[in-house]
Design a protein around this nucleic acid. Structure first.
Lengths: 229, 229
DNA sequence: CCTCCTTAGTGTTTATTTGACACTAATATA
DNA sequence: TATATTAGTGTCAAATAAACACTAAGGAGG
């Protein structure tokens, strides 16, 4: 089936920069391309827009198809429209970034014969298209965003100790933070619920677990509260 | 001439939210639509993507064609892709926002038979498509952005008194600022050149003029300096 | 030329926020 | 029971932000 239009149209795609966090590092999810161009190269998961589907849905759908990830935190990043960014033709891509926690979302074999894998943020191979640039833009945005919005929770399991949350900030900002000051600050926002549970299976004193309270957070956002770290 | 593709493609447009400032108010530049849909309604200037042209260039070109404005400060805002946002078909629009100074850029008769006019930000008519929503998004972005990046200069003539700059901030943030604290803060950034000139044609003591020094500013940005007001 | 009106320009004090810093408590393991 | 590891907690100093009011300059109008 072919589609004909009176004027030439650029193709439209949606791509995702998916950030994940394990005990060690901040990671990015990449897929290996099965076709030309850039066959065999690693690339951001993504795919072509479908008429009648919002691009955020396209991004989510492609992400699920190529990597198995669902229900992730997803925000629009930027739209890249350089006519040369795809060697075949003019392709406009709307890039999104996603945050997932690796414990809930293990690396999954790709469902459509491409392989998917997590790469450490500072050990990324040369990517297909202009995906290096997209990734860099996403990383900068993430660093900028986390300092004034508590999005770090999206990278953690539902219940987590404060040490882990501090680790998120340290890994994204790439600098150490003072434990006491960090706790003071994050607790003063009053968006964490202190649970009556502690960690298990740790080889030392177990820490108390906390949970992000999205209801309270949304209320505070509405009242104009600023969450600067 | 027709163009045929193997898969259906959404149309792509670029739209601009152009902010201007006069002595009184923050204003937005709108054009009156000459065709259906929404014939006669006011809308954001913009138009269809051209294959081979980056969307920012599309935005600039359309802005020049429809309103005569050139060489404006332009940044990407957000991409809107709701399939229902245009009644004809699925149209993805990449929205930009622009800042211009009304003194250098007087309202110009549209070159392609549509009329263009400045509207006060809090007296905007119902707009075509989802342009209300785009405008609202742009206004929020502008307010957010100006508190941590000195973009206010883009709305002013090259040489301006500090009072005028304070006016920019007050009009965008929609609250009064303390004169002494504002001056202290903005001068401490050291991105303003104090000129040996003063205002003319004012019915009172003339104020010293300043000029934004972009070179110095860019240097400081590179060194990670933060420009928070 | 004198008065009045309008805006320019300038510092200090106080309150708040940030940043630096070190020890005791709890639990697991050897 | 000794050791190792991380949890958890408060104070003080420095920097920043916020509140606040008067004198100076110049134009307009009598």
């Amino acid at each position: 089936m072919n589609y004909t239009y009176r004027h030439a149209r650029p193709a439209v795609t949606a791509d995702c920069v998916v950030f994940g966090l394990d005990e060690e590092d901040l990671k990015v999810l990449l897929v290996q391309r099965g076709q030309e161009p850039f066959q065999g190269h690693w690339a951001l998961p993504g795919g072509f827009a479908v008429v009648g589907e919002a691009l955020e849905d396209t991004a989510r759908r492609e992400l699920a198809e190529e990597t198995g990830l669902k229900d992730v935190f997803l925000e629009q990043l930027y739209t890249f429209s350089d006519p040369q960014r795809d060697p075949r033709e003019h392709v406009v891509t709307v890039a999104y970034y996603a945050l997932v926690n690796l414990s809930d979302h293990p690396v999954q074999a790709a469902t459509d014969a491409r392989s998917a894998a997590w790469f450490c943020i500072d050990d990324i191979p040369k990517l297909a298209f202009d995906h290096d640039r997209i990734l860099q833009t996403a990383y900068e945005r993430l660093r900028g965003k986390i300092t004034y919005q508590p999005i770090g929770f999206e990278l953690l399991p539902e219940k987590f100790p404060l040490r882990m949350l501090q680790g998120v900030y340290e890994k994204i900002l790439d600098r150490p933070l003072d434990k006491r000051n960090f706790r003071k600050k994050i607790l003063s926002m009053e968006i964490l619920e202190e649970l009556d549970e502690i960690e298990t299976d740790v080889g030392h004193r177990a820490a108390r677990l906390y949970r992000f309270n999205k209801r309270v957070y949304d209320d505070k956002v509405k009242q104009g509260f600023i969450f600067e770290l």
